[in-house]
Design a binder for these strands. Sequence first.
DNA 1: TTAACTGACATTATTATAGTATCAGTTATA
DNA 2: TATAACTGATACTATAATAATGTCAGTTAA
Lengths: 141, 141
Amino acid sequence: MKLLTKHTDYAIRALLELAGSKDEFLSAQQIAKRQRVPYQFLRQILQGLIKDKLVISKEGRGGGFRINKHPYLISIVDVIVIFQGNIQLSDCMFRKKLCINRANCVLRKQINRVEKLVNKEFKGITIGCLLRDLEKPKRRG
Amino acid sequence: MKLLTKHTDYAIRALLELAGSKDEFLSAQQIAKRQRVPYQFLRQILQGLIKDKLVISKEGRGGGFRINKHPYLISIVDVIVIFQGNIQLSDCMFRKKLCINRANCVLRKQINRVEKLVNKEFKGITIGCLLRDLEKPKRRG
DNA sequence: TTAACTGACATTATTATAGTATCAGTTATA
DNA sequence: TATAACTGATACTATAATAATGTCAGTTAA
């Protein structure tokens, strides 16, 4: 049971890397090496980030990727949604149709509450604040 | 991405059913029928609940399962732990060894915070309170 | 003695996750 | 202008987790 898959995890690390070298283009190779992420897998992930325009790319020699949004405006929810769909703590029947039984509903109501909470917390975790923590570790808290 | 698997889901429903007929033994058949859960799957799940002594069983004709703890003392975390292990929002490298890089650490720190929050919330959701909501829907809030 | 049960496994199907491989096309530059 | 360093797109494979199903031995009440 985990809420973050490797896709998301690596994507966040890539974004941190890109946010750290804001105006340069970094190639997939460079990011893969620095973050120790499998190269081909990372490329796949970067394509995902492009689709949502979190990064832009430049083809050809000297090309690569560049971050395309202010780091404080990219939350980890944005990344999760790309690779894992909406945050959802359980398969919910009543999202699709009427509950089969009330026991389900009662449980779902509680789960949904926690789900919203997680969503809110995750929205508050941005690439910007992760990068800040990364660069100025003493300042935290 | 989901935090509750079918195992957990069905287990909770079974516990609600059992909590509702506190002193009777209910057979797996009865529970399966009432909650519309696959019979053989449910039996497997009930064995899981037995191992942690959340329910006890009686063999032979007229046998079945009975809840073995006060419903308010069974939280959904107890159930999750049986079927899914500890709540863990992501594979965490630093649980195993030192972080490969600091980016990881910074992210983990945040994820762990949310993880604790989820844990706390889930601990507050007990079979007892779910059952209460189920029986007295107007009283909620 | 038999029907209705549980205990304990073995087995299978499906899906999600993680990762690899390939090839076409683009661009800077030697 | 050839080529090395890139991305785009997509097909493929491996592994593990999830969600079941099936079977058979043993127990108990009627």
